[in-house]
Design a binder for these strands. Structure first.
Lengths: 213, 213
DNA sequence: GAAGTTATGACAGTCGCTGACAAATGACAA
DNA sequence: TTGTCATTTGTCAGCGACTGTCATAACTTC
């Protein structure tokens, strides 16, 4: 399911919008890969899709956004699932479960969507603005997850422990993605595997590494 | 010592350069605080300092950089000190020691520099581009520290544990800064205290939080 | 004080991005 | 089908960040 959005055909208008949206995304990704991110202009993208530049900026917040926006879906899954986890569950277990569902959605993507993941992954390495953008997305998700976690843990506003836990958890996930980039692991299934492996490694080694202080 | 750079007067030329540099930084910070970051144009900054726009971009990589660049000094301290710590020391102890030195440099700043910290701190909250920029700086420092840590720990390239430790450590520091921002703690001394407190809290609680998985 | 190096200014241009208004297009009811 | 309405799109004009180029000015060195 490359997106539960264009499936629910809300009408011709909505369908058309989704079509341009994905056309812009795919064209942008291809151009970015072919000529480089910075060397590609918005004008080239919109010319290829045959829409006006103004329309581009009605769909996306900026050049960076056209490449990264479709990842937001998975952040949302993470947030939603964590919020619905049983409150009695240990925090780290709940986080891991939410991550598992989110990564599962990545793995269940159709061919088209998998191709986008691959392209984006190859693209982000060696494109600092995109790497920075992804970093920002992680941070935004962290804020939302931390709020949910604080409620789960019944923590007061001054209690930093939920923030600490969520932030360090997402950091592990991010490090896993970075590692995949470094080792040129681009297949979504392989990436997913590696993320969960690193979370397991973190659970195994982090307590010891931190408690030596 | 607001910077070990302008102290070592390398000649008239060098002194003049440092003077314009700080003039640009201070003017920018003041304007950003007065009118807002986005509402302030580079033209306004350079007009106030009476240099050309072109000169501005010879000193700084961009609008964001003029506000954040002077923090780089402290990242550098962190890196240098970690590299010089005795290899036998437990990793977390070495990180903590390096952090202590870096934060010590912040506390030992002169009045002028302390004022800059305050301004920047007030500025970053509610200015997403600057917050994102700081996030990026953290990430860059993380990469460098991780490399040093990998060498310290005698870890191979595939071993992610040094990355994991450094990244989670810097995340704790970052969360501490965020907490200061949220609670409007702007005094450098208070910020420093809070960061070290949160690191202590993390050492106390993170192992337990992570090992429950 | 002359020669050489380096910083600065002026100018022109590209590109990302936005506001405003008019034209086109799909939605819906008569 | 047709007319009305809401929404989307294109056009245009403009701002501001940022860069390359080249001449000029400033410091440095001998």
């Amino acid at each position: 399911m490359s997106g539960e959005f264009e499936e629910r055909a809300g009408g011709l208008r909505e369908r058309k919008k989704q079509r341009t949206r994905w056309a812009l995304i795919d064209t942008a990704l291809d151009l970015f890969l072919a000529k480089g991110y910075e060397a590609t202009t918005i004008d080239e993208i919109v010319a290829a899709v045959d829409v006006s530049q103004r329309t581009f900026f009605r769909y996306f917040a900026g050049k960076e956004d056209v490449a990264l926006s479709f990842l937001a879906e998975y952040d949302q899954i993470l947030i939603t699932v964590l919020a619905e986890r049983p409150p009695a569950e240990p925090p780290i277990v709940a986080l891991r479960a939410a991550l598992h569902v989110s990564l599962g959605a990545v793995q269940d993507s159709d061919e088209e969507h998998t191709a986008r993941f691959r392209k984006l992954r190859r693209l982000i390495d060696g494109t600092p603005p995109l790497a920075a953008g992804q970093l920002r997305r992680f941070f935004e998700t962290e804020q939302k997850l931390a709020t949910i976690m604080a409620r789960r843990m019944g923590a007061g506003l001054a209690d930093m422990r939920p923030y600490l836990l969520v932030a360090s958890f997402l950091t592990v996930v991010r490090v896993a993605f970075d590692g995949c980039a470094r080792d040129e692991v681009i297949d979504p299934a392989a990436v997913v595997l590696r993320v969960e492996e690193l979370v397991a490694l973190a659970i195994e080694t982090l307590p010891g590494a931190w408690s030596a202080g």
